Each structure stands twice: as structure tokens, then as C-alpha cells.
Amino acid sequence: MHGQRELGDFLQTRRARLRPEDVGLPDYGDRRRVPGLRREELAMLAGVSPSYYTRLEQGQSVGASPEVLDALAQALRLDEAERHHLHDLAGSVRRPPVVRRPPEEHADASTLELLESLGDVPALVSGRRGDVLAWNRMGHALFASHVDFSGPQYPDGRPNLARLVFLDPHIRALYADWPEKARSVIQNLRMVAGRHPDDARLTSLVGELAMNSAEFASMWADHRVRPCDSVVFEMHHPSVGVLTVTQQSLRPPQNGEFHLVLATAARDSASQSALRLLAQVISDTSDTRDLRPKHTELVRRSGMSK
């Protein structure tokens, strides 16, 4: 990914979302050719010259100091995630572009033990680019029961969370608010891309998704960033019906690039009962790839809608 262009596009999109009244500047009602602050207005707020800021946004300057970046972040009203992303993008501009093929990712023994110790809590381990490196049976059953359970064992055929969300109709149907799920995935992927602009596989993944999903291309161009730490989703599961879960993303201490994704439901709620039913369903079968036909009667007896 071209660092100078990414930095310039991020600055431009963040500038476009601000109005003069948002930052205490007078608005004389004059018509603006483009939305948001003008470059000279932002430069004034950040304490830099308009010509310097213009060169930075146009990719013609590569030497922005941390102090200047922090001043721009404050002027743009960036949150903490966006500020870190701005520094990551500026750092990639200063480094010589070297596209690398990173080593294969795998979940180590201690991470796998942690995953299994979670029992009936749906969980999976994802790598830097969202590849599923491992999941427990409940994680597989909740998140992607139609996918081969053994897929994460094969590096060339691992399920990828971003690819599933944008290209798999089963996953689109799984989330009641699919656009929110899609934005959550893409905003986290944007942060990863800022930290690893030389990751050839990540660049390839982004290109593939942009070519095959107009929605991905549109959301990617928005340059929004947000970590997927904890998000509540309503899911329409084919086996146990509607449930609301909190999906939390934790980083195992052994590798800060990995994410341990957990799904939990409120105590004594119908959603918690649905998760218990799902655990019962998979305990009755050795194959979680197709749960609905084998357990329609069990779901009906539970009183839950499908």
C-alpha cells in the first residue's frame, strides 16, 4: 500500500468531516466547493503553514514530526485510535517501501489450551489479517457452522473473517445489522494496514475484497478506524434463532497481533439460553457443519424461534 497516498487520503477524509463551527471558526455562509474545513483553516488550527500542510496531504512531504502529527490530530479532533493510526501512516511514509511476505501464522500450544479451556463459550483465534487460526466447537458452531471445521489447520485454506463478512451470504444473513458488522471488521483492518503497509498478503486481501465487493470498496475509501474491542450484535442463527451477544476481542500475551474473539450473552437471558441450546446441539453430533436439519425438533421443544 502506498504510504504517502494513504496518509494524504486519511488527512483529507478526516478534514472533510469537520465544519467550521465544529472547531470554533466563523462560518460566513460562503459556498464551499468541497465539504469540511479548508486546508488553510486546518493548517491554522494545527499551527503549521498552509503550504506545508498542502504538501503533506498531497504526499509531497515525508518528514512530519511527532509533534506536528499530534497537533494535526488535535485540530482534526481525532480519537486515540485515529491518532495512533495517523502516526502509523506517517511512519510508513518515512520508511523505505519494502513489500515482504510475512511468515506463516499459527496459534501456539498455550493459546490452543486457552481456547479449549473456555468450554461452552464460543471462541476463535484470528491472526493479523483476520485468518481464523483456530476455534473451539462452539466458536465454529456460532460464527460459521457451514465452513469446514478443520479449515484453520490448513494455511492455504483458512477462513478469513473479512472475506466471510463481505463475500459469504451465510454470514450476511447471520447478522441482523450486517452493515455495522462490516464496518467493525473494516475499521479494524484499516488499523492493521496502517501498522503493516509492507504486508503483501494484507495488500492482496484488500485488493481482492475491493474488486469483489462494492460495499467493501466504499467503506475502505472512508478511512475510518476503530479497534474491535467489544461490540454487541444481534444474530439470526440457523439452529437456535435470534440471540444477542457481546463479541469481545482480546490479545493473547504470547502474540499481540493475534485476537482471541469471544461471544457472551447476558446472564439469565434468552440469548444465554440459546447459547446453551447450541452447546446441547453440538454435543449430540460429531459434525457441526450442518446443525439445523438434525435438531429442528430440539429447537421447537425449547420454545425458541428459528
Rank of each mutant, 00 (worst) to 15 (best):
M191C: 11
F166T: 02
R172G: 00
L174W: 00
L164E: 11
I186N: 03
R158V: 08
I186C: 07
P159G: 07
Q187F: 08
R183E: 14
L189H: 13
I171R: 06
G157C: 05
A162S: 15
N188H: 15
R163Y: 14
L161A: 08
R183S: 14
E180F: 07
D177Q: 09
R163I: 09
S184V: 02
N188Q: 15
A162P: 09
S184M: 07
V165D: 01
I171Y: 03
A173F: 00
N188L: 12
E180Q: 12
I171W: 02
L174I: 00
L167P: 01
I186L: 15
V165Q: 06
D156E: 15
R183V: 06
G157E: 07
R172T: 01
N160G: 12
R158Q: 09
P179Q: 06
Y175E: 01
V165L: 11
D177K: 11
I171M: 12
W178K: 01
R163Q: 14
L189D: 08
R158P: 09
Q187W: 10
F166E: 01
L167W: 05
N188Y: 13
N160S: 12
A162Y: 07
L164K: 05
V165N: 02
M191Y: 14
L161C: 06
A176L: 14
L189M: 15
F166W: 06
R158L: 12
R158D: 08
I186W: 00
A162N: 13
